[in-house]
C-alpha cells in the first residue's frame, strides 16, 4: 500500500512526536513560525531526494560502508540547498543560521535512509520521505505556534520572506512570557506535547 508509506509519517510515525528524531533543530529553530516553515521545507527537500538516491543505489552500496555513503549523499544535498538559499533567499539563510548546514546530521534523514530507503524501492522511499518531511513540518509548526504565541505575545505569519499577516494579543504582547522563546521553553513545550500525545494516544 504505497499511500500508507506517505500517511504514516504524518501521524503514526511522526518523526518528532513518535519517533522522537531530529530534536536538536526542533528545539533550536522553533522560535518562530517563519523559521519553522523554512526549516521544514529544507528538511522535506533533503529527505525526499536522499531517500530517492539512496533507494536507487541500495543494491550497489556494500553494507559495511553504507553509513559513510549515506552521509556523503546527504551532505551533498544539504550543501546544494545551502547554496540555493544563499543565492535566492539570503534572508532565510540568515535566520536559519548554522541549523541549515546541520540538517546533514539531522537524525530524521539518516534515520529514514537507514530504516526505510535502504530496504525499499524508489517510489515507496520517496513517499516515505514526503510523509515524514511533512510530518516534521507540521510538528515544527505546532511547536513554533505555541512558542511564538506565548513568547512574543503574538504571531507573525511570514512565509519565505512574504508577510501574510500579523496578530498580537493585546496587553500580553507588551510583557510576553519570554521564557518560551528560550531553549528552556522549547524543552518544556516539546516535553508537554510528547506527554500529551503519549497519554491520550491520539497519534497511535
Amino acid at each position: 500500500m504505497p499511500f500508507k508509506d506517505f500517511s504514516k509519517g504524518l501521524v503514526k510515525a511522526n518523526p518528532l512526536f513518535v519517533l522522537v528524531l531530529g530534536l536538536c533543530p526542533a528545539l533550536a529553530v522553533s522560535t518562530s513560525i517563519e523559521n519553522a516553515f523554512g526549516m521544514g521545507l529544507a528538511v522535506i527537500f533533503v529527505l525526499v531526494l536522499s531517500n530517492l538516491i539512496i533507494s536507487l543505489l541500495r543494491n550497489m552500496i556494500p553494507k559495511d560502508v553504507r553509513i559513510p555513503c549515506f552521509i556523503v549523499i546527504i551532505a551533498t544535498l544539504v550543501t546544494i540547498i545551502n547554496i540555493t538559499f544563499k543565492a535566492y533567499l539570503p534572508s532565510l539563510t540568515e535566520s536559519l543560521g548554522v541549523y541549515l548546514p546541520l540538517i546533514t546530521v539531522n537524525c530524521i534523514i539518516l534515520g529514514r535512509a537507514e530504516a526505510f530507503a535502504s530496504k525499499n524501492p524508489p517510489l515507496r522511499s520517496v513517499l516515505d520521505g514526503v510523509g515524514e518531511g511533512i510530518g516534521f513540518l507540521l510538528a515544527m509548526l505546532l511547536i513554533s505556534f505555541i512558542r511564538e504565541l506565548l513568547g512574543s505575545g503574538g504571531l507573525n505569519f511570514t512565509i519565505l520572506g512574504y508577510k501574510l499577516g500579523e496578530f498580537t494579543i493585546p496587553v500580553f504582547s507588551s510583557m510576553p512570557a519570554l521564557f518560551f522563546i528560550m531553549p528552556t521553553g522549547a524543552f518544556l513545550i516539546i516535553g508537554l506535547l510528547l506527554g500529551l500525545f503519549k497519554k491520550t494516544g491520539v497519534l497511535r
Binding site: M60, I73, A75, T76, I80
Partner: peptide, 22 residues
C-alpha cells in the same frame, strides 16, 4: 575492493556536482 570503489565513486560524483553547482 568493492567497498573502496563504491565509496570513491560516490564521493567523486558528489564533489563534481557540487563544484559544478557552486
Amino acid at each position: 575492493v568493492k567497498r573502496v570503489v563504491v565509496l570513491t565513486i560516490i564521493i567523486l560524483v558528489s564533489s563534481l556536482s557540487l563544484y559544478a553547482y557552486y
